[in-house]
Amino acid sequence: GKMTGIVKWFNADKGFAFITPDDGSKDVFVHFSAIQNDGYKSLDEGQKVSFTIESGAKGPAAGNVTSL
């Protein structure tokens, strides 16, 4: 299901971020390909987002990341 959280930090050079979920679970890795914005895919620290949890090769990662 959809979860919500806050972007903890975003590394534009490497194209990934971490989200701190609102439910208090541990921070979730985000690859820029999961960001659903049109055009430039970036996130801002402190931004509120919704996302799903996908199981990636290196463990859980956020999918369908959308700005709220």
Rank of each mutant, 00 (worst) to 15 (best):
E45N: 10
I35V: 07
I19T: 00
A12H: 10
A17I: 06
K2G: 06
P60K: 08
L43D: 01
D27M: 07
M3T: 05
G15E: 08
F51W: 10
T4Q: 07
V28P: 00
D27F: 02
K14N: 08
K26E: 11
S25L: 03
I19W: 00
I6F: 05
S50K: 07
A34P: 04
L43K: 01
N37D: 11
V7C: 02
D27E: 08
D27S: 07
I53Q: 07
F16Q: 03
G5D: 00
S33V: 05
E54Y: 08
Y40Q: 13
D44F: 15
S33Y: 06
L43H: 02
K14A: 12
K48H: 13
A12V: 14
D27Q: 04
F16W: 08
V28Y: 05
I19S: 00
K2A: 10
E54L: 09
N11S: 09
K48Y: 09
Q47M: 12
T66E: 15
G56Q: 10
N37Y: 13
K26S: 10
L43A: 01
Y40G: 11
F18C: 15
V30H: 01
K2V: 12
S67L: 04
I35P: 02
K8E: 01
K26M: 11
F51V: 02
S42Q: 10
D23H: 03
K48N: 05
D44S: 12
K58V: 13
D23T: 03
I19N: 00
I53L: 10
L43M: 08
K8I: 10
G5V: 01
S25N: 05
I19G: 00
S50F: 09
D44P: 04
V65M: 05
A34C: 14
S50Q: 10
T66P: 15
D44W: 15
V28Q: 03
T66R: 04
F10R: 06
G15Y: 04
H31Q: 10
V7M: 02
T20N: 03
F32S: 05
P21C: 03
K8F: 03
V65G: 14
K26Q: 12
K2F: 13
G56W: 06
L68M: 11
T20Q: 11
G15F: 04
K26P: 14
A12L: 08
S50D: 05
S42A: 13
T66W: 00
G15L: 06
G39K: 07
K2N: 09
S67I: 14
G63Q: 09
L68S: 15
K58N: 13
G5Q: 00
G5W: 01
F16E: 05
I35N: 03
A12D: 05
W9F: 09
S42M: 12
S55L: 13
V28D: 00
I53D: 03
P60H: 09
F32R: 06
L43G: 01
G24S: 03
G5N: 00
S42T: 12
G46V: 02
V30L: 06
D22E: 07
Q47Y: 05
F10L: 13
H31P: 12
D13A: 09
G5H: 00
K48F: 07
I6W: 04
T52F: 13
F10V: 15
P60S: 08
K8Q: 06
E45P: 14
V65I: 12
I19A: 00
H31S: 11
F10G: 02
G46Y: 02
F16I: 14
S42E: 12
F18S: 06
V7G: 01
S55H: 14
G46F: 04
T66D: 15
G59Y: 07
V65S: 06
L43N: 01
G15Q: 12
N64F: 07
T4P: 01
Q47T: 10
P21Q: 02
S67E: 15
D23W: 03
S67G: 15
K41L: 14
K14E: 09
S42P: 07
N37P: 08
G59L: 09
A57W: 06
W9V: 03
N64H: 09
F51S: 00
F29K: 07
A17C: 04
V30T: 01
G63P: 09
Q36W: 09
A12G: 06
G63H: 08
A12Y: 08
A12C: 15
A17P: 00
H31N: 13
